[in-house]
Simulated assay, not measured.
Amino acid sequence: MIFDDFAIKSLIRAIPDFPRQGNIFRDITPVFQSPKATRMVVDGLVQRYVESDFTHIGAIEARGFLLGSMVAYALNKPLVLFRKQGKLPDDVLSEPYDTGYEQSLLEVHKDVLCEGDKVLLIDDIIASGATFIAAASLIRRMGASVYEVAAIVDLPELEGSQRLQDAGIPSYSLTAFACDER
């Protein structure tokens, strides 16, 4: 199945003033309500990474879990979960992050990666880049490296992909929206 940028963008809802006044939230849940769109998104990522040299897929809570688990299954790679504070039951590493509207801690089990592992990090959207950068820090603290960051949508005006680039982290998205684009 060929990826259709227009078809995917047409399903992503723009929710004004969420989670705070002035933001336009990009709601990807309609993509997952369409089996064809879901397959298109997953297949688009699988095709990009099928012959890539990485060892694990890292999925960021919560929408990244949906996408990451499907891609991990398709590529037969182990899945690493990056969660908000207090959600993992064993010994964890924590990393603070600030998205501009939320300060939080991202956590991962401290024994899930080791030196030499390469992680493809997946979430739904590249916005400020803060969560991806926190996950990358956790990955590096375990001696592993980030292969690339992947998302369905990039919001370039929020400069997350630029922050990732500045941090030496390559990024990829299937589509992008201007902040004012409906």
Rank of each mutant, 00 (worst) to 15 (best):
A136D: 10
R26W: 01
F132N: 03
L75T: 05
A74K: 01
P30D: 04
D98N: 05
L113Q: 00
G58K: 03
S128Q: 06
F82P: 09
V50E: 15
I60N: 08
D124Y: 02
V42D: 05
I122P: 08
T29C: 03
G64Q: 08
M40W: 01
V80D: 00
L106M: 03
T29L: 14
G129P: 07
F25I: 14
R63C: 10
A134H: 04
L113F: 01
D90V: 15
K87S: 07
G22I: 14
D27P: 06
K77S: 04
K118W: 08
G129K: 12
D90Y: 15
Q85C: 13
V41L: 04
F32S: 05
D111Y: 11
T29Y: 09
V112I: 15
V112T: 15
K36A: 14
N76F: 01
Q85H: 15
V41M: 01
V119M: 04
L138V: 02
L67V: 07
I125M: 07
P35F: 07
D117H: 15
P89L: 14
K84Q: 10
A59C: 10
D117Q: 12
L81I: 15
L120I: 11
F54L: 06
A59S: 03
N76H: 11
D27M: 00
T38P: 06
D90R: 15
L93S: 06
L113P: 03
Y73W: 13
I28Y: 02
T55P: 01
L67E: 00
G68F: 01
R48A: 01
A135V: 00
L105F: 02
G116H: 05
L79R: 04
V42I: 09
E61A: 07
Q33N: 12
S94Q: 14
I28Q: 06
L81P: 10
D43N: 10
S69D: 04
Q85R: 15
Y97L: 09
F54A: 06
G44E: 01
V108R: 00
V119R: 04
G129D: 12
R26S: 08
V46W: 04
G116S: 09
L79V: 02
L45P: 01
Y49E: 03
Q33Y: 04
E107A: 03
S94R: 12
T29A: 10
T29D: 12
V71R: 10
S104N: 10
V46I: 07
L81W: 13
V119L: 07
Q47S: 01
P35Q: 02
S69E: 06
A72S: 11
F82D: 15
L45S: 08
G116E: 13
A62E: 02
A134W: 08
D90P: 02
K84M: 05
S52T: 09
G58F: 02
F25V: 11
P30Y: 00
V71P: 02
R48K: 12
S137M: 13
Q103M: 09
T131W: 09
A130L: 06
L88T: 12
K110H: 14
G22A: 14
L138K: 02
D91G: 14
L79G: 10
S34K: 14
M40T: 08
R39P: 02
D98Y: 03
G58M: 06
E102S: 14
G58N: 07
D98E: 12
Y73K: 10
F65T: 07
V50A: 10
L113D: 06
I125D: 06
D98R: 04
K87Q: 13
I24N: 11
L138C: 10
V50Q: 09
D43S: 12
R26G: 03
A136G: 13
L106K: 00
S128G: 07
P96N: 08
G86R: 12
V112H: 12
